[in-house]
């Protein structure tokens, strides 16, 4: 797929939030990726190591939380988890189904090291 441009976006978002938090270093990133969002973890990690070099994100760990795809039948309201190939409703075999989860593709949070200047001032 297009892991390079995806990784560039991840870095941009992480840098923006890290700067806002006055971070001196980003130590980890928590990414949430749904089963239906095709992305290769190893490939993102590869580009990440390359792109983050020389930034405050260098050396940060990428954590991928995978979310399963869940489907809902529009005829009988049954919800079920997708395993392998796409199937019709296991309850009533209707083909009218809707994806309710599994498309997630976002950066949930980052862990940063920040200068604790503010608390130092307060404690002194």
């Amino acid at each position: 797929m297009h892991e390079l441009s995806v990784t560039e976006s991840i870095l941009k978002i992480a840098m923006q939030h890290a700067t806002q938090a006055n971070a001196v270093r980003v130590t980890s990133l928590q990414l949430v990726i749904g089963q239906l969002s095709s992305i290769v973890d190893d490939s993102v990690q590869f580009y990440w190591d390359m792109l983050s070099e020389g930034t405050i994100c260098e050396g940060a760990q990428l954590h991928f939380e995978r979310r399963p795809a869940r489907l809902k039948c529009l005829d009988c309201d049954q919800t079920y988890t997708l395993s392998g190939e796409l199937t019709d409703c296991p309850n009533c075999h209707s083909a009218r189904i809707k994806v309710v989860a599994g498309e997630e593709f976002y950066l949930d949070s980052i862990e940063v090291e920040a200068e604790s200047a503010l608390s130092d001032v307060r404690s002194s």
Binding site: S9, I13, Y106, S109, E111, S116
Partner: peptide
């Protein structure tokens, strides 16, 4: 130096969107 967790919750392709 303190380590803190910063909530982001931003879609990775939000800039494109």
């Amino acid at each position: 130096m303190t380590t803190t967790r910063v909530a982001v919750v931003e879609k990775i392709l939000s800039a494109n969107d």
